[in-house]
Design a protein around this nucleic acid. Sequence first.
DNA 1: CGTAGTCTTGAACCGCGTCAAGCTTGGTGG
DNA 2: CCACCAAGCTTGACGCGGTTCAAGACTACG
Lengths: 259, 259
Amino acid sequence: MTTRENALTQINQKSPGHDTGERCGECPIRYRAVCAHCETDELALLEGMKFYRSFEPGQPIVWGGEQMDFVGSVVTGVAALTQTLEDGRTQMVGLLLPSDFLGRPSRDIAAYNATAATRVVMCCFRRKPFEQMMRQTPHVAHRLLEMTLDELDAAREWMLLLGRKTAREKIASFIAIIARREATLLKRNPGGRMRIELPLTREAMADYLGLTLETVSRQISALKREGVIELEGKRTIVLPDFGRLVEESGDDADGGYFS
Amino acid sequence: MTTRENALTQINQKSPGHDTGERCGECPIRYRAVCAHCETDELALLEGMKFYRSFEPGQPIVWGGEQMDFVGSVVTGVAALTQTLEDGRTQMVGLLLPSDFLGRPSRDIAAYNATAATRVVMCCFRRKPFEQMMRQTPHVAHRLLEMTLDELDAAREWMLLLGRKTAREKIASFIAIIARREATLLKRNPGGRMRIELPLTREAMADYLGLTLETVSRQISALKREGVIELEGKRTIVLPDFGRLVEESGDDADGGYFS
DNA sequence: CGTAGTCTTGAACCGCGTCAAGCTTGGTGG
DNA sequence: CCACCAAGCTTGACGCGGTTCAAGACTACG
């Protein structure tokens, strides 16, 4: 069981679906979320407007076009933002990991669908008080600006992937992104052999990458056949050589994935 | 000659490449740029740190990875942000129109290449004083947050296009986007017959859409052959029926292009 | 009149989507 | 314990949309 899942189970046991007064001080995303730079008095303010909600895999968090009376952070798990065309073609446009922010202040209508990809716990803030706080404490607004700019950078990297990479490069890039993120979370170096867990089904990966799930499956098989990756079950991947994977991704060696 | 080009020529005549103390009050993007909500005293502050620069079509504005000692707004013209893979494949990741902002506060290394697509005039602010002003006047930071969120929305719409639309839909979408923007600038209704000017070469359109320039050319020819669009020369398009174009774009009727 | 930049058009190829079948795994009930 | 089923995944055969390569047209500019 991963550390992520551990944290999640704890929280779920303590707060079965509604506000139970979690202390922000013990929050696993305390120093990465919107509240990163908040002092104790501001945390107190936040605790007054916050509540936890959890979602099962596949369950909708908000539906595009609907009223959204809260904003909030992903505490544990992974959520996906998706857009769809009339005829049902869908494209993922955001992948929310722990500490990422959902919702746009000063707009109460959700612009996209948000769905839980794994089990998700969110720390939600009631919209009105949160907006007011943003007006009064500049550094919360400033932190949100920073996070939004990071998201924009990620979106642009993603656009390069969608517009110009081959199916094989897309798959390699995706695995590399997930690997880097797990590495920064777990403070491991991406040097040696690493084991990572894919948080998405093949279909969700296809929606992320602008492919079909058949192509995703075939390319994963190909990378496995050629020894770039190894599989343990369907969802966990072992990387014997991270550098080799990056070569297959089409990026230059230290391609711009911070965060 | 379009209104855009008119404004541009005026400014170029007045300020041949460096600060000549343009008054912000007369600025064509006064109420749409970062400075939108600034009062007269704040404008005075901005005038002290600003200078104009102009760029010829094709000329680089900043190069990804380089030091960038200014940030600023596009006053007239169109600039493109692009990313490239090692082997030369390039993807446009941002299209900057008048009032759009270039550069990221609190990061002095440019993340992308920015190139002038047409002749461009930029209102630049020296980085240091601008960052300091942002810290002191919250509503500038707030305006920047709003603009960044709008950019993120646009990027996500774009991701749907790149990942899931056919070549034909991509072309139709692009023309529709340009048409909507010209309509809001010129305050015309997108109902009747409208004439629009493409600000990009076929190659730049291809980089925008994740296609080759041949495919762009072919699809434009196809749309013309079928009467969806008419051509006057290579770069100006007449739309006999805007609704028809939108049908071809794959979006639902009032697809989310605000801005 | 010639040349360079931009655009168009054609023909052949191929990567990925489509359609279809079968496999693997975990859960449920007899 | 095994039979059954559904969800997720894999694999194959085939066709199409878009790329690639190549030739030529249009326009601006010397």
